[in-house]
Design a protein around this nucleic acid. Structure first.
Lengths: 147, 147
DNA sequence: TATATTTAGTTCGACATTAAACTAAATAGG
DNA sequence: CCTATTTAGTTTAATGTCGAACTAAATATA
């Protein structure tokens, strides 16, 4: 194993650990039985717009269709989204945010502000966010090269 | 939401996506029914030394005790680790790598070299690994501040 | 048009993971 | 010592996720 290879593994290892620690923090702020994955879908709909098909969301999250069926049915049962039949394609459906869904997404995000602030006392966020452009590059390349 | 907060979310979002894409690549290289989590435990034992208790590994991975019981029993059934009673503590156990376990870890890592090389045609790994020190800082702070 | 293929979503069985209850052993405090 | 508490690991029920089989609708092709 070359030095570069070793460091590449180290890079992805750090990414994995950070992701797990951050997800744990996020998860601990989720109310009664809702999972980060549920929030993520709501967040996606808020940011990129609702009125999209389940398959579109499935592709965005690179997740199996069965998983998305399950996630959407939980969100629907909770009244956070509304699932309507597709106007022109009888096989398909369209997902809309409800007011409750939008409120939940907003509230979930705001619930993290204190944690961000508290971490900011020990961490220089300005320096951290400078990594974003390079991370974006990595993400895009990994994304384009997935099979 | 301030600009900093927005970027902090974006940072963790990029981290999450990269982690998922990288994990998917890794997972697709795992043989017959073995999961990345199984590899991770073997890798941990190779890098930091075996002969440790399940609880030690549990803490290292910040995972529930039940999860580790399950993971270790899979690894043990596959002959990749050996679980022995603890010499001085009747409640505890000690985990050892087998030769098969070491070989598996080695082979799993090497199986990723082609993917790393292929990605290297589109990605400047030298620049990517420069992010490691800052990521380490973030990881350490998150780690120290977990409850 | 009739049939074959593709596409969108659901269902099913398997497994990873979790939290909580549980067992057994070790330790602490009286 | 003896009891209470803590600690290490297992078990159990619930849920997220996956891949594969399945259904139904749309599209391609002949």
């Amino acid at each position: 194993m070359s030095e570069t290879e070793r460091k590449v593994f180290q890079f992805f290892n750090e990414i994995g650990i950070i992701n797990q620690l951050a997800t744990d923090i996020f998860q601990s702020n989720m109310p009664d039985g809702l999972h980060v994955s549920h929030f993520s879908v709501l967040n996606h709909l808020v940011r990129l717009g609702d009125g999209v098909t389940p398959l579109k969301i499935t592709n965005a999250f690179q997740v199996s269709k069965g998983t998305m069926t399950n996630t959407l049915s939980v969100l629907s049962k909770r009244g956070l989204i509304r699932i309507a039949p597709h106007e022109s394609d009888g096989r398909s459906k369209v997902v809309y945010l409800t007011d409750e869904g939008r409120a939940f997404q907003k509230q979930a995000i705001e619930s993290l502000f204190p944690a961000i602030q508290q971490l900011g006392e020990k961490m220089d966020w300005a320096r951290v966010v400078e990594l974003i452009p390079e991370l974006e590059r990595v993400r895009k390349i990994l994304d384009e090269n997935r099979d």
